[in-house]
Design a protein around this nucleic acid. Structure first.
Lengths: 144, 144
DNA sequence: AATCGACAGTTACCAAAGCAACCATCTTGA
DNA sequence: TCAAGATGGTTGCTTTGGTAACTGTCGATT
């Protein structure tokens, strides 16, 4: 009879690790402790690309449109983001960060990068192979 | 100004990969397509160790006691698991799989192992380094 | 043996996420 | 030009997960 040890089972380990890392990462938000992961993703995507639509944000950050919609609203209520109707196509709206939104982003980014760097340096020589393996697995499991 | 590209950001990538893998893994349950991840973990843990308590299951599978409680009830309603009151300590109950539970487990395991193997062989020479890096990160992010 | 704190497990309540239905607008083609 | 389908985005419903409060039992101290 074939044997399966849960603690060595890859899907389980990935899942566990991913939640532990996300959990720890919340501390990185610092003063903005009540930010959610979807909100962080929208913030990061808009900071990265400037003005864009909700659809594009969802595509880039692998989030379902309802998740994006709710995160956008939350950031809007925080005044970190504004919507502007697109005159060419009034179904979509152009989203962009406000000054306070960009400010918060600039506060978070160095801490986020430091967090990531602390993991990678702890991995030492294993870091590079890990990243390569990640890339391979990402290719194998594309966003559905 | 420091730059952060979400698609290269480690916590994001781990999160994304973990859900994609879990997503695909659901196909492995085969005929038991409506099994949830917590239920699968309870099943696998009980098959691995035989009779044990809910507390012990939670510890081994990194699940909160409420999650375990609900998964146990679901498996019980499926008749895959029975509870037996522990006479020595009536606070806890001894849980164990029934014959149908074990049968389902034996159906799933080979498929689960094949799924894992398909990932690892696709990684080729990157598999071993990945597993090492995973172990390092698990040590760095222990179960809280 | 009575009480108090610890502990196993359940339940109630609330936040988060997915699905599907929906609204408004655009595009296509007869 | 207008009907039909596609598209961007929102909302409602349901499922899932976590927190905290609760129940029942145990162990220890008195």
């Amino acid at each position: 009879m074939s044997k399966l040890a849960l603690e060595h089972f890859l899907p389980y380990r990935l899942n566990r690790l991913s939640s532990a890392v996300s959990q720890q990462f919340r501390a990185v938000y610092g003063p903005h402790h009540d930010l959610t992961v979807p909100e962080w993703r929208v913030l990061a995507t808009l900071a990265q690309f400037g003005t864009m639509t909700a659809k594009a944000i969802g595509k880039h950050s692998s989030m379902h449109k309802t998740k994006v919609s709710r995160a956008v609203r939350a950031l809007e209520e925080r005044r970190w983001l504004v919507r502007r109707e697109n005159a060419q196509d009034r179904r979509e709206e152009s989203l962009s960060l406000t000054a306070p939104g960009l400010h918060a982003y600039r506060e978070i980014v160095p801490r986020a990068l430091a967090f990531e760097a602390s993991i990678l340096t702890a991995l030492g020589p294993h870091a590079e192979p890990l990243l390569e393996a990640l890339a391979l697995m990402e290719a194998r499991f594309p966003v559905e």
